[in-house]
Design a protein around this nucleic acid. Structure first.
Lengths: 209, 209
DNA sequence: TTGATAAGTTATCAGTGATCGACAACGCCG
DNA sequence: CGGCGTTGTCGATCACTGATAACTTATCAA
């Protein structure tokens, strides 16, 4: 039996959907102007509600960003899992995993910023204030990377035996490209595909035998 | 009305000295709490002046951060130039250049953040609002990297012929490590020296023949 | 009709970056 | 000595931020 003891009240908007409307508005504005440049009043106005009404759904502004971040990471996790389904310990599959990560960062720059590029706050990091959920999502993705590198190592393809260290170095290498492309689009980069190809090749030659 | 005791003016530091005092105070606070978490009033109090007095020396708060950034980059430029004096196209010298960059980032995390990790503003990036001076300083350092890679390429040691692309990929790889160590110190990193050594080795094997 | 409750509002708070006009000290000319 | 602009600083204040309190309205259970 599934008693529907609670009916949604929808005075104006659609009660339960209000949260989604807020997230939609926030995602749009964050993408346009950056997280720090968007105020709660702007989010509220685009969502069609008053500014204090936001706080019925989110404790803080950061929590809105964190929610968007977690959702984006769910997408990354999906893509990584997908790349892992037909993964074999080969250089080609290695490259594909790296490109999945890079492509995700370029597809979701705002989520990526929230997860890995936001400045730490005074009383602990943003991640701590939001219950560490974005960090957890990121760690899950990182764990997948560890698995991938572990399989390659088992196949004798990894240079060095410290799988954890190699994975962290690899991740750092990937993050550098993604975060710089996001944070400094005005830099006179070479052709983007050329840069990505060069970068992936460099990491592959550096990490594999 | 009780007549106020007239304002105790503080003619302490004159002209250029005040400016240095402000920069010192800002550097201290930025390092402790992060750029965004420090207010102009806090800077002013630590500098021993009123908050509006700041604006006699700096047009905006960002300009204070930019000034500190430029100064820090002068240090990086010095170190890079120093590493270039006795540079020979060898793997060892290559490694040394990479480590100079990494060490700089770890020594001046706040300057590094201002230069490469700050979020873009609505009306253009922070760098544009401050006249692009931090960006210029960064580009000068990047130019040195291009020279170094160019010499290695001339010696036939670089994998691939697109020196610019390789340099950008290298820089991205370095930036990734530095920025992640700065932004996510709470991540369960392996031993720092191990990680740096692994990373440098990975980049070397990936970029050189 | 009641009471309870969920959802949204207006009004307001303390704190932010930045600006304005007033005022104190100083150098300078008379 | 007295008057006067210049320079440096200040208190007061502005528009805006994130967040909270108190009140109003809509809906449901009884």
């Amino acid at each position: 039996m599934i008693p529907k003891t609670r009916s949604p009240r929808k005075p104006k908007g659609q009660g339960a959907e209000r949260r989604e409307e807020i997230l939609d508005a926030a995602l749009t504005l964050f993408g346009q102007k950056g997280v720090h440049a968007v105020s709660t009043r702007q989010i509220a106005e685009l969502a069609g509600i008053s500014q204090p009404a936001l706080y019925a759904y989110f404790a803080t502004k950061d929590e809105i960003a964190a929610e968007l971040c977690v959702r984006a990471f769910a997408i990354l996790g999906q893509r990584m899992a997908q790349a892992r389904v037909d993964f074999t310990p080969t250089a080609a599959c290695f490259d594909r995993c790296l490109r999945v990560y890079i492509q995700f960062g370029l597809d979701h720059p705002d989520a990526y910023r929230v997860a890995f590029m936001l400045e730490k706050a005074a009383d602990g990091s943003f991640l701590e204030k939001t219950g560490g959920r974005p960090m957890e999502a990121g760690k899950a993705v990182f764990a997948t990377f560890v698995e991938v590198v572990g399989e390659l190592h088992a196949a004798g393809l990894v240079a060095g035996d410290d799988v954890e260290a190699v994975t962290q170095a690899l991740w750092a290498g990937l993050h550098g490209l993604v975060s710089l492309l996001i944070a400094r689009p005005e830099f006179p980069w070479v052709d983007r595909e050329t840069l990505i190809a060069t970068h992936v090749a460099m990491l592959r030659r550096g990490a594999l035998k």
